[in-house]
Design a protein around this nucleic acid. Sequence first.
DNA 1: CACTTTATAGTCACTATGACTATTGAAGGG
DNA 2: CCCTTCAATAGTCATAGTGACTATAAAGTG
Lengths: 246, 246
Amino acid sequence: MTNVPTGYDKHAFEPFAVTVDLAVFTVRADALQVLLVERALDPYAGSWALPGGFVLPRESAEAAARRELAEETGLPGDVVEALHLEQLRTYSDPDRDPRMRVVSVAFAALVPDLPEPRAGSDAAQARWVRYADAEPLAFDHDRILRDARDRVRAKLEYTGLATAFCPPEFTLGELQQVYETVWGTTLDRPNFRRKVLATPGFVEPADGPRRRTAGRGKPAALYRAGGAGALHPPLLRPGGKGGGPR
Amino acid sequence: MTNVPTGYDKHAFEPFAVTVDLAVFTVRADALQVLLVERALDPYAGSWALPGGFVLPRESAEAAARRELAEETGLPGDVVEALHLEQLRTYSDPDRDPRMRVVSVAFAALVPDLPEPRAGSDAAQARWVRYADAEPLAFDHDRILRDARDRVRAKLEYTGLATAFCPPEFTLGELQQVYETVWGTTLDRPNFRRKVLATPGFVEPADGPRRRTAGRGKPAALYRAGGAGALHPPLLRPGGKGGGPR
DNA sequence: CACTTTATAGTCACTATGACTATTGAAGGG
DNA sequence: CCCTTCAATAGTCATAGTGACTATAAAGTG
């Protein structure tokens, strides 16, 4: 396995292991939570880590990520197929794994509130942990997790990504809760509503039964995610322009 | 090389080749241009491709990208060290290279107007080509190039990235030229000036000699890139809000 | 029913913005 | 040497978006 295939250029061909690591986020209980697994084997046995695993010989990194996600969470395949999965970046430091040279493609996945995961075969157990309580993790997963969180926070501003945290039909209040949780801010409800509805393609009305959870006030209208990828205008975090104190 | 290192989980370990591919952009002659190399060897011998090559055994993907960039362009090492290099994403389709399983980490690099590149050792020749004239390229490089262009266009809006296309000291006119070229729009000069100067950390005044190129009008003040990463508020593309026709 | 709670509608002052006009300052030509 | 020319810079104005805030509507609870 050390012979260089013909047609390749001057640099030595050297084999690498390629893995995927997944930062799976959800919003539950007013907190951003991430799916972690407890490592069964050395190195870092007993430590918590991001779920992930090897890319198989005839599989793309995306496919590997979805397969691993299904294995770790026990979710049915069609649900996993539909999840928002986004490639984050690739971590390739030569010493990131003490055993050998491993290059890892990291993904961020955004899921609505899911049932508790079951332990996968690779991991002693899997569970949701609040982002703030996740560290320390095995390998360089602290860094990956932080990068993933930063990316998700930023993308809420200028894409319709927040809807990926919501069920297929949701209220504007639920959507606002996602923003407030991920950004750690509070937003004015009428203003939030105005902006979301004024952004074309962000959400579209759905006509389901309006009351889904018990509660007092007026039942909220339901919306579906719109087709728009990028938001125009973006839903910027507060602290910017417009209207000073009155 | 088929034995699985101990401590690894159930999936078979399988070696991959790992490469980097570079989309090196510059703005010259009022056009977005990209650095291409002509492939000397099969497959795709004689086709144009993005520069790139293998990641060495003790090297990160970033280091490999900078090394390949230096080799292909003949730029001095310290210049290459300072360039803006940004990881784009990783391409891992099992069939993207007809010879073997190759996973490639793609980077986008933004450089100011550089001297003509010299041919590197891996490539028959290297040259700048207008983005519009670049396709078709070898492998899946058309896709990589398009992804890179999209990313650069988008990041101009909400980061200070445009300064990476400019020399260390530049005029606001030069900066505006970058935006107009990359976005393919024309911008109103006074408005552009106002927005850039009103965005904290985007640019800061420099005090060099004001006239660098021959020309008639009043010589422009020089600016340096400011420290800001993300721009607040972002420099959105026109077509949005504000002041309708008067 | 009174009272609470949540959704939704609307007001207002301030600000960023796009379109546009005016002035300044430095060549270049005659 | 003046006067044209051209780009940089300064300023104006009407509109739309925004944050803070108030008001109304609709549903449930005791």
